[in-house]
Design a protein around this nucleic acid. Structure first.
Lengths: 345, 345
DNA sequence: GGTGTTTAGGCGAACGTTCGCCCGAACGTT
DNA sequence: AACGTTCGGGCGAACGTTCGCCTAAACACC
């Protein structure tokens, strides 16, 4: 075992009461500069570290932020998990908190798991990801007035702190970019209807098309789960449309779909970039090393993570974060898959 | 706040002393079936959850496993993080533990961070990843007799619990596979010299070549950091060797190098697979959707995670895990990038 | 010189558990 | 009838903090 050294040991060595040591360590109370130095020396010499369990009991806090996420299928991967976690963990540490991971519960037990974690005092707050419309976790946390912040939106009538990336603006930028490249018939590889994020991003496509006065052929909008095969199949289908309805570019809602799309276009003998434009979303690792390299949207993950953490800390301290809702823009990364001339790599 | 309900509340409702409730909840002590039912009913009705801070204080445990990892540069990504964390978190939960993430400290402060975490009772044990030869963290943990288990090896003279993937066998399999495909001049894209894992994997290459009676031209072994550009440059250089020394295949120590290698071969006008074989390591997400799809080695990450966790739990309970050292084989996934005929996708 | 006011630090209490010890009743056993 | 044994459960104590209240000395002020 370690942690054998307690406040009392330090106090004995410094010749004060142990409560005074506590005061010094927490920076409260009036203590003479000399005794304070004395105490710090004792702390140093004994290698004292505060016992978090005792502190947690007394302060009714855990110093822990709870987080879970839906695991990705291994063939797809989560392009942002590493960066997101790294950023959150760093931001949390700056406030004296740590990140606690718990298993992604099946939907039925979901709220129970959250309830248990809060009731037991395991965590001081949550970062809730993969939010849905009318998300029951968010409902629960609002009702219980438990500190949390969401990465993503939910029911727009609910008032709660969240950070989100402006997917709509992102896809709008991508679509506008394709229009600028001279494309007029632009398809969209979208997500299933029930997806909140998907709907938001889809709107960006519609806006850009409308703003450019371009009509959207219903056959151009494909809905599917994010999967390489789905992107591949969708583009095969799009390319089999009669020439006057056949798109010359597609904007995909994520990189996986985009990569499938590129392969389908390549296999159909098209020059991706010159003949057929493709854009993705996420800037997955390796997207720049595809051939052709992938034009995509990069989410400002470190900023998202810092915002989320800062806001959550506010909530934990029973302060209202301001702003309470934050929407950050993604950045369009233009690469070869969407430009007609110039860069080819 | 939540956790207002304590043992005493439950006890009052069930008409027993609160210590008896504790016994029931922890499954100790002799309690009549009827009172036990009574108590469970009270627990249910009040929605009682044990206060972990209090329990932790009393039991001198935290129920937390500490973990950190070296963040990957965003353009590379960590191909196994999601799966690894998911598996560890699930396995830990099965034993009543959670995973606590802490920031990856700079090398100088490394041991201090670990020391602090153990002294403060923050965690009950560590999973140590990205191990080095003579790793100071491992040294510290051994010296302090603090529970931990490593993902990877270190100084072979130190006796400590670890799980590792047999990279040597993996690269041996890949090299043998290339030899089977008819290749004789096979190059290796290796890691920097100081890398323990790299040295291990490199041995597998040497073994396979030696076993097949093939001499290794020193120019064939390239050392570099894992990076797309490095793989690209290495193959460019290899292809500029005089024809009689020019390799017809390369085994790479990771997928990133392999992908760079494929691109370089492609750009040199070679048919990857038919003319030039390439293998990687990791089975990164998307490796199967590259063109050509990548032959690679898949690590048994879920098994690694389960082993690590089970062994760590043993250590925490002051039991010696058995076996104390585990080495799991990776699996060769043969795809188009290494086969001369047949599958082309 | 009595009455505030500040400064430095002591002290009791409580946070909610778990653990070991104790005791009374019920049940056999010699 | 006296004596162990088991069963069911109560009870005191301790885990190591933090927090608020109290006090004694020092200092100033009129």
């Amino acid at each position: 075992m370690a942690g054998r050294i307690t406040l009392k040991d330090v106090a004995a060595r410094a010749g004060v009461s142990y409560q005074t040591v506590s005061k010094v360590i927490n920076g409260n109370g009036n203590v003479a500069a000399e005794t304070e130095a004395q105490i710090w020396r004792a702390v140093e010499e004994l290698g004292y570290r505060v016992n978090v369990a005792a502190r947690n009991l007394r302060t009714r806090a855990s110093g822990l932020i709870g987080y879970t996420w839906a695991p990705s299928p291994p063939d797809r991967g989560n392009p942002i998990l590493d960066q997101f976690l790294t950023s959150v963990v760093a931001a949390a540490e700056a406030h004296g908190y740590h990140l606690m991971l718990f298993p992604h519960p099946p939907a039925i037990e979901e709220v129970d798991v959250y309830r248990q974690l809060m009731r037991s005092g395991r965590v001081d707050g949550f970062i809730v990801a993969s939010t849905n419309y009318d998300d029951p976790r968010i409902r629960l946390l609002i009702d219980e007035a438990f500190p949390f912040v969401a990465f993503g939106r939910s029911n727009p009538e609910w008032d709660f702190p969240f950070v989100d990336v402006d997917g709509r603006a992102g896809i709008r930028m991508a679509t506008e970019h394709l229009i600028e490249q001279g494309h007029r018939a632009i398809a969209l590889l979208a997500w299933p209807d029930h997806s909140l994020v998907g709907a938001d991003r889809t709107e960006g496509y519609c806006e850009a098309m409308a703003a450019a006065g371009l009509a959207v052929d219903p056959a151009w909008v494909h809905h599917s789960e994010s999967a390489f095969q789905a992107g591949y199949a969708a583009v095969q289908q799009l390319l089999s449309l009669p020439p006057d309805r056949r798109p010359t570019a597609v904007a995909a809602l994520d990189d996986t779909l985009a990569i499938g799309a590129i392969r389908a276009a390549l296999d159909a003998g098209l020059q991706v970039g010159a003949d057929f434009g493709v854009t993705g979303f996420d800037d997955a690792p390796g997207a720049q090393y595809l051939s052709p390299s992938l034009t995509t949207l990069r989410q400002p993950i470190p900023q998202v993570a810092e915002q989320l953490t800062a806001m959550l800390i506010d909530c934990i301290h029973r302060r209202t974060p301001s702003p309470k809702q934050v929407i950050l823009p993604p950045r369009l990364i233009v690469r070869a898959s969407s430009v007609r001339v110039g860069v080819r790599d």
